[in-house]
C-alpha cells in the first residue's frame, strides 16, 4: 500500500511539474539587430540582474545607451505606470449604491474622460520613445523582463523606434541549468542571427 502511495505521489508530482513547465519557448524576429547598433536596454529586475544583462549586451558589441541603468532604483520604483494611471481617475466619485439614485451621465462622463486618458497614455509612450530616439540617438529599444527568470518566466522584445514597429518578441521559459547570463546570451544569439523558429501551431 505504501509503495502504491509513493508511486502515486511521484506521478502526481511529475504531473504538477510538467504542468508548470508547459509554456514553450516561442520567438519571432523581423529584423536582425547587428552589433554596433545603438540600443536602449530597459530591464525589469534587480540591479545585479541589470548589470549582468548590460555586460552581455556590451560584450556582444552593442552600443548600449544608459536609459534605466544610471540609477540605483528598479524600473517599478521610478516608472510605476499603474500609479500614473490612477492619479487621473477616481472611480468612486459617485456612489452607485446610493438610495438617491445612480448617475449614469456622470459615470459616462468619467468613463469617457478616462478612456481618452488611456488613448493618450498610449500616445504618450510613443512620444517618449521618440524623445529617447532624439536624446540618446538609439535605433532600438530592447525590453527584457527578468524579474521572474528564476521562476521560469522571462521575455524579451525589441522595438524599432523609427517605425514604432515591434521587430522581435521572445517568450523564454528558463531551464534549470539557466542563469541570467545564459538567458541573455540566448536572446542576443537570436537577435543577431535573425532566424525564426519554424511556425508552430
Amino acid at each position: 500500500m505504501k509503495r502504491i502511495l509513493v508511486i502515486l505521489n511521484i506521478l502526481f508530482s511529475v504531473l504538477i511539474m510538467s504542468h508548470c513547465r508547459s509554456s514553450q519557448e516561442r520567438y519571432f524576429i523581423r529584423n536582425v539587430i547587428a552589433p554596433n547598433t545603438a540600443v536602449a536596454v530597459i530591464i525589469e529586475g534587480e540591479n545585479d540582474v541589470k548589470n549582468t544583462v548590460l555586460v552581455e549586451f556590451l560584450n556582444a558589441g552593442y552600443n548600449v545607451k544608459a536609459i534605466n541603468a544610471s540609477d540605483f532604483y528598479r524600473v517599478e520604483d521610478i516608472f510605476e505606470v499603474k500609479d500614473l494611471k490612477k492619479t487621473q481617475f477616481v472611480t468612486n466619485v459617485l456612489d452607485k449604491k446610493s438610495a438617491e439614485g445612480t448617475a449614469a451621465v456622470a459615470d459616462k462622463f468619467f468613463e469617457n474622460l478616462y478612456k481618452l486618458h488611456l488613448y493618450n497614455f498610449e500616445a504618450a509612450k510613443a512620444e517618449i520613445l521618440t524623445e529617447i530616439k532624439k536624446k540618446y540617438k538609439v535605433d532600438y529599444v530592447i525590453l527584457l523582463a527578468m524579474k521572474e527568470w528564476d521562476k521560469g518566466y522571462c521575455w524579451a522584445r525589441a522595438i524599432h523606434i523609427d517605425t514604432f514597429d515591434l521587430v522581435y518578441v521572445h517568450n523564454y521559459p528558463a531551464k534549470r541549468a539557466d542563469n541570467v547570463q545564459s538567458i541573455v546570451k540566448h536572446f542576443i544569439t537570436v537577435i543577431q542571427r535573425g532566424t525564426n523558429q519554424p511556425t508552430q501551431k
Binding site: 519571432f28 523581423r30 505606470v81
Partner: peptide
C-alpha cells in the same frame, strides 16, 4: 508576445503600442 508572434506568422506587422512597458 504570443499574440504578436501569431500576427507575425500571418504576415502582419505589429505596432509597439501595448508593447512598450512591462
Amino acid at each position: 508576445n504570443r499574440a504578436a508572434i501569431a500576427l507575425f506568422e500571418r504576415g502582419y506587422k505589429v505596432s509597439a503600442i501595448g508593447y512598450v512597458d512591462f
